[in-house]
Design a protein around this nucleic acid. Structure first.
Lengths: 394, 394
DNA sequence: GCCGCCGTTGGAAACGTTTCCAGCAAACGG
DNA sequence: CCGTTTGCTGGAAACGTTTCCAACGGCGGC
């Protein structure tokens, strides 16, 4: 018997020790002071080690735990004076609900997972921004992870993400043919909306890459260009493939030969020698259509270095607008993607699938919704149009 | 007795009901199929409602919960055959640890809070990117929130963020004079590192705005400019104030009058009329120094529209590099900030404060560390230098 | 041959919250 | 004056983990 008691004692002492350590570490920033006057109070220091809990508040205000919980959750069925008393204690102790404990009870985590190739890419950071706004409107937080377009990394980060049990997932799938990802999607306990690229079994918010590329190409054709070079990187990506398809389709319709070079890696030097090579051929291109932001700027820089006159000697249209495209000389004609709308609409679609907080039933049709937002051809002067007369457009 | 039993029964039934509903909602995407062959097995359906738990795995593999936990956490002190058996069950059931339950036990949450003004701002999204890399290296996730530089929003989002109990905080404080924020920082249970702007009591990773602004100004002076207009927006921000100080200091040292206009709101039109106003004065500026990316592009656009020759008639240096600054005609001389390093170093500093996973003691000095990273003056041609000879530099 | 050690295992407590239920007092209708 | 409702309150179970401890069997050393 004594042995047992002693064991218990040891156990308690150890617990205390751990607590002590944790607290010390946690307090590293808080040092002394603080509103911790209550800590030296009469209570046995049983609880109240580090961060205040419901029980601490309950003890400090002399009510039950359940009552404090009710107060924290909106204060229904609580008498005014109790309400006030508890609220004071909450403020005094600086109590914040422990989210982990809340979600352990099975409710929403108020968290949306966002898995994108790279947050440093302005396209995806813009998506993240508007998605974050929507999340905030539903007072949820965004949980970020990056995939670098690498299926393996994507999968492992997805696993980490799912351990946090987000209510839903915004996903930019690296590739539609990823078997493991497809399996995950099928078994996913939460709704998934993909951005920018479709994935079988998921709702998706896309842009009409095909039509936009087709339109841009035909625009160049309309300017009398006959040898339009299409520069693409990473044809493994859905959007790039679609744009390629649009380009080819337009060229075919115009009775012109497709001229595609997918060898462009990121980096200006490569672009320069690459373009130089094309220009030196027997039948040099009289226009370039780039399918990607980095390709566009690389091509532009290369053409500048080669002292080629844009658009007289060679026209240029690029995919994806960027801030200063209109300030360049000549101003760049680009396909402008509705980037921010993609993030916003995807998040809205996701929250629609989650349904309102009241257990209302979200229509099952949302699961397969496919939203296609329109790209816009932003005519400036690099395509041959005379938009540069007044300088950069507003 | 019977009453009590009935009560229990009813209770169970209700629970079941809730479970059922949750499961239905959660499964919306999963439909039928899946690897759920084990669900129709012999066991009473006591547990195993939706997402598999440790107990489910334990039952499926015929061992105890504790053993499964050991397997999941690295499999020390588990016999090889048990290990294999449990691992198979884990895979078959698609078990993922419930993060909430884990952190409820008091460990690290493997989560870093990131509170920035706006993720859509390329400066902060770059920071976020590198910070995210560091976080991933410590297999943690980033929890995002935006403040819009609004102290009230900052505080409320901070409260939401803290409910998720991040292990540490990366913060871009909207203002150092925010009393409530200062109170929060003092009592914060977790270490905080601020980015780009200092805050009393926090470690900080900054850039030497003062020196860089001074250097840029003196560079313009060196080109013989005498009336250098400084365009600033939001002088409430630390970095802007520092840059203003650097400018003023340089002008004073050069015996020139400071010419500061802080009335620039974001938007090109305002900049145009604003600059037009300055140019129409009796003593028009012969150089402009802009303290902010948006001000730089606005000024550049305005000068282009007004058909002013840069740098002959008016020189221009801007704060913050951007991708195409070198491709403009003339190429823009800018102060290049070590954006990515800021995010990376800040995250590293934060994790250093957290200490290694083993309860080692992180040196307390880290708490007040202030890292100042150097800005670089990137000479191109808009300041008067002849760097444009070969076209845009690499 | 007994004792104690070691490797392996499972039971059970604890983490902080929500929520069901019961208890209690006051108010109210009969 | 009693029975019932109503409003407020607190106890306690449950969520899924981790981890402490006890138990158990085998084995080597004395």
């Amino acid at each position: 018997m004594t042995v047992k008691t002693e064991c218990v004692f040891i156990k308690k002492a150890r617990k205390q020790d751990v607590r002590e350590k944790q607290t010390r570490v946690q307090r590293m920033c808080a040092d002394s002071s603080g509103s911790a006057s209550w800590q030296q109070a009469n209570m046995p220091r049983l609880k109240s080690g580090g961060v205040p809990t419901l029980a601490d508040v309950a003890r400090a205000s002399g009510v039950g735990i359940a009552t404090v919980s009710r107060v924290v959750n909106g204060g229904v069925n609580v008498s005014p004076e109790t309400l006030k008393k508890v609220q004071r204690a909450v403020r005094r102790l600086g109590y914040l609900p422990n989210h982990a404990a809340r979600i352990l009870k099975g409710g929403r985590t108020k968290t949306i997972g966002l898995l994108i190739p790279s947050i440093a890419d302005s396209f995806f950071s813009s998506c993240a921004g508007t998605a974050g706004e929507v999340a905030q409107a539903h007072d949820s937080l965004l949980l970020f992870a990056e995939s670098n377009n690498d299926p393996a990394l994507e999968l492992s980060n997805l696993a980490v993400l799912m351990q946090h049990r987000p209510d839903g997932l915004l996903l930019v799938p690296s590739s539609a043919s990823n078997r493991a990802l497809r399996l995950f999607v099928q078994q996913s306990p939460v709704p998934i909306v993909t951005l920018d690229r479709p994935f079988p079994g998921c709702a998706a918010v896309l842009t009409n890459s095909f039509e936009a590329a087709r339109e841009a190409t035909l625009h160049l054709v309309g300017h009398g260009r006959k040898r339009i070079l299409c520069l693409a990187a990473e044809p493994s990506l859905y959007t790039i493939r679609e744009r390629l398809r649009g380009y080819s389709d337009a060229m075919l319709a115009a009775g012109l030969p497709s001229l595609i070079d997918t060898s462009l890696a990121i980096g200006a030097h490569n672009a320069e020698t690459l373009i130089q090579g094309h220009l030196g051929s027997r039948t040099p291109p009289d226009a370039i259509f780039t399918l990607k932001n980095s390709a566009t700027t690389a091509a532009y820089q290369a053409l500048q270095r080669l002292k080629l006159n844009i658009p007289r000697e060679i026209a240029l249209i690029g995919f994806d607008d960027f801030e200063l495209a209109g300030m360049l000389r000549p101003a760049l004609t680009v396909v402008q993607q509705p980037i921010e709308d993609v993030g916003r609409r995807a998040a809205e679609l996701l929250f629609a699938q989650l349904g309102s907080d009241d257990g209302s039933t979200p229509p099952a049709s949302l699961r397969r919704t496919r939203l296609v937002l329109p790209n816009r051809l932003l005519l400036r002067s690099s395509c041959g149009c005379r938009h540069s007369a007044r300088g950069p457009e507003e």
